[in-house]
């Protein structure tokens, strides 16, 4: 009996170990997030670092977000038109592009682009600071690294990413508009009217809420992995890789949860 159960037990243990490790890591990230929130409301505040984070997270992400959105919006219009033809529903292109971009693709793609561009850069920067003892130097200079490095970045992510999502939504709809009017023969005026008439305030608000949550996750995870990186170049590489993978998965999971909460009923 024991001989039969041994391989099953080993397989379950092999499955359980990474699950437990992931849950433990998620717990540590949650504690780190709670500590960050605690520091956000308590002085000292580092205005210059916050301004620099706004520039890096927000302004410098605009080109990536814009290009991602315009191509996605264009491709979405083509797909919906081709699919809609199968049951004579080509006319819904403006409505589906609008709702698809605003409710789902805009926030998720912007979130993933931020994870790729911002999370990786934050993780690599802070991990390098750790490896080169700059974090220790901050402490000896009476500066809390969490206040100086994490809080400005997380706050910038929380505030900037909803704006980026809003801009991405508009550019994505514009991409659909350009393809639909330039290639698929839609009337520009009626395309815009259909888009505006169809979208509801709740769609836009949900998009911005998702953006704020994804911005918080992307920047927090970058800081967490940077602060907890291993030694040397391999440590920096591992922190960057882990940060991008974790942020992407957490953004997709959060998207599912938020969609369920906001639109589940």
């Amino acid at each position: 009996m024991a001989q039969v159960l041994a391989p099953i037990s080993a397989a379950l243990a092999a499955l359980g170990r990474p699950v437990l490790a992931s849950l433990a890591a998620l717990g540590r990230m949650t504690i780190y997030g709670a500590q960050t929130l605690g520091h956000i409301v308590r002085p000292p505040f580092y205005g210059r670092e916050f301004a620099s984070a706004l520039l890096n997270v927000g302004w410098l992400s605009l080109p990536v977000v814009g290009l991602t959105a315009i191509f996605t919006g264009g491709a979405l219009a083509l797909q919906i038109y081709a699919g809609g033809q199968r049951f004579s529903a080509e006319a819904v292109v403006p409505q589906i592009v609008a709702i698809g971009m605003v409710r789902e693709l805009g926030p998720v793609l912007v979130g993933l682009m931020i994870a790729a561009r911002v999370t990786s850069s934050i993780a690599a920067e802070i991990a390098t600071m750790k490896v080169t003892e700059q974090l220790d130097a901050l402490v000896t200079l009476s500066t809390n690294p969490m206040k100086y490095l994490t809080v400005p970045r997380v706050l910038a992510g929380f505030l900037c990413v909803p704006l980026l999502v809003g801009i991405g939504d508009i550019i994505g709809i514009m991409g659909g508009f350009l393809v639909a009017t330039g290639q698929l023969g839609f009337n520009p005026a009626s395309y815009i009217k259909n888009t505006v008439d169809f979208l509801q305030t709740a769609d836009v608000v949900s998009s911005l809420i998702k953006g704020a949550v994804f911005g918080f996750i992307a920047t927090l995870i970058g800081c967490y992995y940077g602060m907890n990186s291993g030694r040397g170049a391999q440590g920096v590489g591992g922190a960057t890789k882990g940060a991008v993978a974790s942020a992407s998965i957490l953004i997709l999971a959060a998207n599912f949860i938020l969609t369920s909460v906001l639109f589940g009923s």
Binding site: Y46, T132, E133, L141, S142, T143
Partner: peptide
């Protein structure tokens, strides 16, 4: 910590700040 100063092995200077801002780091905060 205000009673201490420390020279780190590799310098541990903050890359994003100018040299004078590194030196004056403690004199501009806290």
């Amino acid at each position: 910590l205000a009673r201490f100063g420390m020279l780190f092995q590799g310098g541990a200077l903050f890359d994003s700040l100018k040299v004078w801002e590194n030196v004056a780091f403690r004199l501009m905060r806290g």
